[in-house]
Amino acid sequence: MNGQPKRILITGAAGFLGSHLSDRFIQEGYQVIGMDNLITGSLRNIEHLFKLPNFEFYHHDVSKFVHVPGHLDYILHFASPASPIDYLRIPIQTLKVGSLGTHNLLGLAKSKKARILVASTSEVYGDPLVSPQAESYWGNVNPVGPRGVYDEAKRFQEAMTMAYHNFHGVETRIVRIFNTFGPRMRLNDGRALPTFIAQALQNEDLTVFGNGQQTRSFCYVDDQVEGIFRLLHAEYAEPVNIGNPDEITVEQMAKEIISLTNSSSKLTYGELPVDDPKQRRPDIRLAKELLNWQPAFSRLQGLEKTIAYYQALDKIDLKETTQIYFKENA
């Protein structure tokens, strides 16, 4: 990179995806400003960056006015609760970060003449009536159900982002993120894959909700980060799906994790949560054409890397990883 390093603000930087994005942009030679209110993120995810001269951290809630001194070239808006446990416990904060937080950051992008990429989600499709889900599908969302606070926050976020692009001419990008996994996930956060890993590593029974025949498609974090990096630098303002179209049932995935961890765990079954999507599979034709992107890691390769990461933690650390959220937000 010639001349002065590009300067990027990453909100939600202490979260799972935000921390990996911080790593990537540091590696690319950017000056990275991380911002997080730590309501679901953890400084453990970015503590290795604090010693670096091209990283700084702001402990701040983006739902309040956001000020960053100096110029900005890019903004990545990844601040948001992202798991059922999060947005069921803190529904108002979830709605505020998707609305007020997005408004604040779009305003910042406008004033700084910076390009902004906002993190949307496959949850904008709700419990889909079509598969795979393409960007042209408008979704099947229950706005007043328990998941509505997250789904509708993201849908509103997309609408506001496009309004700033169309009305104010702000350079905007929207990524619709499908299920992503890898090191630094918060285990036992209410999502199936990390919860299964936590249970399997502790030889506890794996809790499958419903009959386990609902499907998910899992993307390894390195692939997700690569897709986001390419989208930020692409000339395209409409939403783009980034995910792995390799579809698997939740029951099959549970059995796969038991096998990979050599666990003595068994499967147990519970009631399916309200409005839980029956199917998730991204249509990534647009990402292939626009970004020349597709997943490089298979689910198995990603799981092996992820499980090895958690197996390297001692048992105390593993327990703390699964419980730290509740201690910090009790």
Rank of each mutant, 00 (worst) to 15 (best):
A13F: 02
G18H: 09
G18N: 04
S19Q: 10
H20V: 06
H20L: 06
S22G: 07
S22L: 01
F25I: 09
E28P: 02
E28C: 13
G29K: 07
Y30S: 14
Y30W: 09
Y30F: 15
V32H: 12
I33H: 06
I33S: 05
G34A: 09
G34R: 03
M35C: 15
M35S: 15
D36R: 04
D36M: 08
D36I: 02
D36F: 08
N37L: 08
L38Y: 10
L38T: 09
L38K: 08
I39L: 14
T40K: 06
T40G: 07
T40N: 10
S42M: 10
R44G: 12
N45I: 02
I46G: 00
E47A: 03
E47L: 02
E47P: 00
H48N: 03
L49T: 05
F50I: 04
K51L: 05
K51P: 00
P53R: 02
N54Q: 14
N54L: 07
N54D: 13
N54P: 05
F55W: 05
F57T: 10
H60F: 10
D61C: 11
D61W: 13
D61A: 12
S63M: 11
K64M: 10
F65S: 08
V66A: 11
V66K: 00
V66W: 04
V66F: 04
V66S: 07
V68C: 03
P69Q: 10
P69S: 05
G70Q: 04
H71F: 04
L72G: 00
D73R: 00
Y74H: 11
Y74A: 11
I75Y: 02
L76C: 07
F78C: 07
S80R: 07
P84M: 02
I85F: 13
I85N: 13
Y87E: 08
L88W: 10
R89G: 09
P91M: 00
I92K: 01
V97W: 13
V97P: 12
V97N: 01
S99W: 15
G101C: 12
T102P: 02
H103F: 15
H103P: 01
L105H: 10
L105T: 08
L105F: 08
L106G: 10
L106I: 09
G107E: 14
G107L: 11
S111R: 11
A114R: 09
I116C: 03
I116P: 02
L117H: 01
A119K: 03
T121F: 06
T121M: 06
S122L: 08
S122C: 13
E123L: 03
Y125F: 15
G126Q: 04
G126K: 03
D127I: 06
L129V: 11
V130F: 06
S131C: 06
